[in-house]
């Protein structure tokens, strides 16, 4: 074996060793479980990536629940919230976390759900017979103080001071985008909504496929006004130490995004699943979810002493009904945004 061959084989041997190490490491890593209830009951919880990610509320929540009850939680990632029901079809679970007001009807049509406990002390505005709300936030336009004078209504968004500054999401591919289009349709009516969206075009910086891209353009200072959640500024205040982020308050009210959890009728560990739903809406758990998800808690007292109290109070459009998707999509496509 000559020197050149040895030189060429060296990186290959290193690469081979790296792969073998990776396999053993992952095999060991996947067997590790930090909890105390390795032999106790386990509930399967299906949720979206953000909830069960290392920075989401899921891991800490599972640890606390296991320490308290001895019941182990096994999370399964559905990817994004839009894929929850399809994943449930393939992986029967005891609890589903992350349905929203838009997807509840479809969830009911696709599967049967157990009734939720009646004695939960949560904000009655979000009560559902078969789902438990665990956080919520009004939709709002976010801006940075000093960059622009904030809008005060949907009609105000047409003002020329917002020329090329607004970043939106497409309702055909994004739940917040769907909320916005429905908001416009509800507030202005079908005819005026079309006129409004057409007039909005010069002020729109971009329409993205989802919240991530739209809000990314905003935080990278390429847009000055982004459709997001009223609670979004709290993230920048607490994590980025940037106090300039603000939510624009609309006099005519804001639509609300509510996140729900439910127990499918096909659950295997139904009692433990119900126990977990109760745990989700306890004050301490609500604090954790509020801080990690940057959303309002459904137990009002959980907000006490937090930065969420500094957010403006807004009127909510809680009676806003979701129009037919076809009507919303047609409105959007005709808008030429």
């Amino acid at each position: 074996m000559n020197g050149r061959t040895i030189l060429r084989l060296t990186p290959l041997v290193i690469a081979g060793l790296a792969v073998v190490t990776a396999v053993f490491y992952l095999a060991r890593h996947s067997k590790q479980h930090p909890g105390i209830a390795a032999n106790g009951p386990t509930i399967q919880v299906l949720s979206y990536s953000g909830f069960i990610a290392a920075w989401g509320p899921g891991p800490e929540l599972a640890k606390r629940f296991e320490n308290r009850t001895g019941i182990r939680i096994e999370f399964r990632d559905a990817g994004d919230a839009g894929l929850l029901m399809k994943k449930l079809e393939l992986f029967p679970s005891d609890v589903v976390i992350g349905l929203d007001e838009i997807s509840l009807e479809a969830a009911r049509a696709a599967s049967q759900w157990r009734e939720t406990p009646k004695d939960l002390s949560i904000d009655s505005r979000w009560a559902q017979p078969d789902f438990v709300a665990f956080d919520w936030a009004p939709m709002a336009f976010i801006y940075r103080e000093g960059e622009i004078e904030p809008p005060t209504s949907l009609q105000d968004l047409l003002h020329e001071r917002f020329r090329g500054t607004i970043t939106l999401m497409d309702p055909r591919t994004s739940a917040p985008g769907l909320q916005f289009a429905n908001w416009v349709l509800d507030e202005l009516g079908a005819e005026q909504a079309g006129v409004f969206l057409k007039a909005l075009k010069p002020n729109v910086h971009s329409v993205s496929s989802g919240w991530t891209a739209a809000y990314g353009l905003f935080t990278k200072r390429q847009a000055k006004l982004a459709l997001s959640y009223l609670t979004s500024p709290v993230y920048h205040w607490t994590q980025d130490n940037d106090a300039s982020y603000r939510a624009a308050v609309f006099k005519t009210g804001h639509p609300v995004h509510v996140e729900y959890a439910g127990v499918p009728a096909t659950c295997q560990q139904c009692a433990a699943a119900e126990q977990f739903l109760r745990f989700l809406v306890e004050a301490q758990t609500q604090k954790l979810i509020m801080n990690k998800n940057v959303m309002f808690p459904v137990v009002p007292s959980a907000i006490d002493g937090s930065d969420f109290q500094k957010l403006p109070r807004v009127e909510l459009r809680t009676n806003l009904k979701m129009d037919t998707r076809e009507a919303i999509f047609a409105l959007w496509q005709q808008s030429d945004l």
Partner: peptide
């Protein structure tokens, strides 16, 4: 979607819409 706006519907957008939204 990002550069074409609401009129720039592509087949993949339709597929995405059918899967995730509808």
């Amino acid at each position: 979607l990002a550069l074409g706006g609401s009129r720039a519907t592509t087949v993949e957008v339709l597929i995405y819409q059918k899967i995730r939204i509808s």
